[in-house]
Simulated assay, not measured.
Amino acid sequence: MFTLKEVAKTIDHSLLHPTMTDAELIAGCKLAIEYDVAAVCIKPYFVKQTAELLKDSDVKVCSVIGFPHGNSTIQTKVFETRLACKDGATEIDMVVNVGKVLGEDWRYVKKEIFAINKECVKHGAILKVIFENDFIPKDKYKIKLCKICSTIGVAFVKTSTGYGYVKLPSGDYNYKGATEHDLQLMRKYSAPEVQIKAAGGVRTLDGLLRIRELGCTRMGATATAAICEDAKERLGLKSKEVEKVTSGY
């Protein structure tokens, strides 16, 4: 059983598509306020404006760092983090250097995550570390990342960017995003205090409720309105009156 507020507060409303205009970002922030989601995940250049738009709401400002491929230098990622926090972000979603993960350069990986988490803590922000699991074929690397993040004490580990496209045998590109296997693995191998965020491919209320059952407390979503309207319909609500909704699982 879940309340409408619990559904909404699971969602980080994602406004990250490279073609989104300022008008679309403003509209997205207003939608996030309307549904009272957990956070707006916004492109870095728009953090300051987003903080202003959300200042009288309970919706947090989240920026992305090294997005979407994680290949910036550590110094660049730290600078991006510092600037985002100064502009008003209180949450940071950072992409790891996947090449360093696959090359098993764990010293570098630890150094990077530690440096960015330190910068977040300095500004009173929290860090979500994006693994980009579509690029990581072996569970052992995901497990190692969970353990590193747990030792450092980040707030969240996150499955994907939603833009981790892999070339298929057909020549087309696609991604799996947040799979049940990965969510279960990340919950199992992360410290209890490290939360799990699902991203990529979760577009329905039942999908949201399922990932909550798997131990996730946040998910990235572009289908925020559809999910919340479905929740309201199941509750028989015309307003944001809070009642109960069952998952169907």
Rank of each mutant, 00 (worst) to 15 (best):
L208M: 09
S170A: 09
K176Q: 12
T10S: 11
L4K: 06
Q195E: 13
D56C: 05
P169W: 05
E193H: 15
E80L: 05
F2D: 00
F156C: 03
A223R: 04
E180G: 05
K118T: 11
C120A: 13
G28M: 02
L214E: 09
E104M: 08
N71W: 07
T90W: 01
A223K: 06
K147E: 14
T179G: 04
L145P: 04
F114L: 12
E52K: 14
D134L: 08
R210Q: 10
S72F: 13
C85H: 03
A191Y: 08
F67N: 07
I92M: 06
A39D: 04
D93I: 02
G201N: 07
H17R: 15
Y141A: 10
F131M: 14
A178K: 02
Y141F: 14
A178C: 10
T224H: 09
I113K: 01
F131P: 03
A8P: 06
L237D: 01
A84K: 04
T224Q: 08
P192T: 11
N174A: 15
F79A: 13
K142E: 02
L208F: 08
G200A: 03
E132T: 09
L16F: 10
V194A: 08
K144T: 10
K122T: 14
K142F: 07
E52C: 05
L4R: 09
T3S: 13
V78I: 15
Y165I: 12
D139Y: 08
Q184Y: 04
E119F: 02
K55T: 11
F79D: 08
G88V: 05
V129D: 02
K188L: 14
E132C: 12
A23I: 04
A39W: 00
T224A: 08
K240E: 04
K158S: 06
G66P: 04
R187H: 09
W106D: 07
A51V: 09
